[in-house]
């Protein structure tokens, strides 16, 4: 049923920290590994060992270079998976009802048994978060690991998305954005969490925590620090003289 719920009881999603993401792709592969054997059909890899391998992934890491008007460029690693939008166009365009947004937690899912693989939802997504599986002909997307987060067969502590559990840099955080006191809401508030392409009106749930400001090579605070380099000696003799006195103190 492709009408969107008026609102959802919870808004589960990810807070992704661009300040610490080192671009290691661990989340990408662990996501693939978990999801190829769990919810829905396997994630295929076409021409797996050949000239143009093309597989289905639910999460991808882009690497950007950002050049400030003046000063040196910086490199930013940028993970991207479904943002579980509140106004998810991918859902409303779906002719079959395969795409839907869950009332209880806001997770956007594809019910593969009724998906005809028309691809319209992928066209409707501004973020490139949906990939049609070439082998199964059904639409694939991040499930927010709906088969992990409530899974009673997993220990409590592991009931979080695979990508979050595996991220070595702890750059991915999972939680309920509807609850202002949740880890992700707080983090997002503190760090000025960003909604991507807000002009597209999709109201994404996932938030991106921007990179913290960097120190420039010739940054001003040398004056504040200068005292620490106050010379006690220009040449060895002087230093050893000072040393002798200094050693008395200890």
């Amino acid at each position: 049923m492709t009408l969107l719920p008026a609102q959802t009881e919870r808004k589960l999603g990810l807070a992704i920290d661009l300040d610490i993401c080192v671009g290691c792709h661990a989340c990408v592969i662990n996501c693939k590994e978990w999801n190829t054997s769990n919810y829905g059909a396997a994630l295929s890899d076409i021409d797996a060992y050949g000239e143009a391998p093309a597989g289905t992934f639910l999460n991808r890491i882009h690497t950007y270079e950002v050049k400030p008007p003046e000063g040196i460029a910086q490199t930013v690693h940028f993970p991207k998976s479904c943002l579980h939008c509140e106004d998810a166009p991918c859902v409303t365009v779906c002719p079959t009802g395969a795409s839907y947004k869950r009332v209880e937690d806001g997770i956007v899912l594809v019910n593969e048994t009724s998906c005809i693989g028309c691809g319209l939802c992928a066209w409707a997504c501004p973020y490139g978060a949906r990939e049609l599986d070439a082998k199964e002909g059904v639409m694939k997307k991040c499930t927010l690991c709906v088969d992990r987060i409530y899974n009673e067969n997993l220990p409590e502590i592991d009931r979080e998305p695979a990508c979050v559990r595996t991220c070595p840099a702890n750059a991915r955080h999972f939680g309920d954005f509807a609850d202002p006191d949740s880890n992700v809401s707080k983090m997002s508030a503190e760090r000025g969490g960003m909604a991507l392409m807000s002009e597209q009106g999709t109201k994404p749930v996932n938030r991106y925590l921007p990179p913290r400001p960097k120190t420039a090579p010739a940054s001003g605070d040398i004056d504040i620090l200068a005292p620490f380099l106050e010379p006690i000696a220009e040449e060895p003799k002087g230093l050893l003289g000072w040393l002798d006195k200094a050693l008395e103190q200890i």
Partner: peptide
């Protein structure tokens, strides 16, 4: 809204 019932506790291994 009626939405598909999915098994959120599948057997893992």
């Amino acid at each position: 809204m009626n939405q598909p019932k999915i098994n959120t506790s599948p057997e893992v291994s």
